[in-house]
């Protein structure tokens, strides 16, 4: 057998590869992995927490929406099943508080009218350039699908385990950590911040153009009968709530998807077992009746 030289060659190659990979690759941007939080919507049976989504919407509306658009979302979405599930009356009233540009009318002029449930959330700035100009040159990204657009490498072998644990909440984990991750003053050793730069632990490279958006107590949450807020009015809680809301904005049919998924999986299990036994039965014998093996 020629296996010994073969094995030796293999060893040599492995050593070479190891040496190559041990070489320091140039440091990628420094990034702190956000802690994995508990989310009501994770896992195969996950559903959104309605109260959390409603709180998250309030944070979005009172804080984020001042600079960020969410142009893919319509008021009517807020009342559809599987979302914050505001009542139709609530969202009709809510939409009417916004002035929506429409037109042109018969005279060829654009005009403003009260919003309707079918209208999309109006953007805070008329165009990208205006948004940039008002924010020191940094463009506040649209929030509609941002929860799916932010992620980080899980690396080998974690990403294999993720397939089974269904961990996929990098987006909300990152957003929640980022919103609560401001440090002022920045830790020692940080290069001096330029105007319009802020230090954030979880931003890749730590420098972020968005100033700290929230303070404790800034957004008022619905009160319980005893007068206490229904959730802590803290930056940490605001961040989680708005991150959950952003997941819903990015994936409004998440609940329907997981529900249908369970039905499909159960059906496949039953159909698969039936097929397995049918297959066994058919394969027990050859066409002439002799045992197949």
């Amino acid at each position: 057998m020629t296996t010994l030289p073969f094995r030796l060659a293999l060893l040599g190659l492995a050593a070479g590869l190891g040496a190559a990979l041990a070489q320091p690759a140039s440091a990628a941007e420094e990034r702190v992995i956000p802690p994995a939080l508990r989310w009501s919507f994770s896992g195969p049976f996950g559903t959104f927490d309605r109260a959390q989504l409603q709180r998250g919407y309030k944070v979005y509306k009172e804080v984020c929406a001042n600079c960020h658009s969410a142009s893919l979302i319509a008021f009517r979405n807020l009342s559809q099943p599987g979302g914050p599930e505001f009542s139709t009356g609530q969202i009709t009233a809510l939409a009417a508080t916004y002035q929506i540009k429409d037109g042109p009318n018969e005279q060829g002029e654009m005009f403003e009218r009260p919003g309707r449930p079918a209208d999309r959330f109006p953007a805070p700035f008329p165009n990208d350039q205006a948004a940039r100009a008002a924010n020191g040159g940094a463009y506040p990204p649209d929030l509609s699908v941002l929860a799916k657009a932010r992620s980080y490498e899980r690396g080998f072998p974690t990403f294999i385990f993720d397939m089974f644990t269904q961990y996929q909440e990098q987006g909300p984990d990152y957003i929640a950590a980022l919103l609560a991750g401001y440090k002022d003053p920045p830790p020692a050793g940080t290069p001096e911040l330029q105007p319009g730069q802020y230090y954030n632990t979880y931003m890749p490279g730590h420098l972020i153009a968005m100033p700290q958006p929230m303070q404790d107590g800034q957004v008022e949450y619905p009160k319980l009968p005893n007068g206490q807020p229904s959730a802590p009015e803290t930056v940490a809680q605001y961040s989680k709530d708005v991150a959950a809301f952003m997941v819903w904005m990015a994936e409004p049919h998440l609940e329907a998807r997981k529900r249908l998924g369970m039905q499909v999986m159960l059906f496949l299990l039953i159909f698969g077992s039936l097929l397995y036994y049918t297959k066994k039965k058919i394969w027990a014998r050859m066409p002439d009746g002799s045992p197949a093996h």
Binding site: F271, L274, T278
Partner: peptide
């Protein structure tokens, strides 16, 4: 019966 059940499940699917 097995064949019937399998066939029926396939049609449902």
């Amino acid at each position: 019966f097995l064949m019937l059940a399998t066939g029926a499940a396939g049609v449902v699917g």
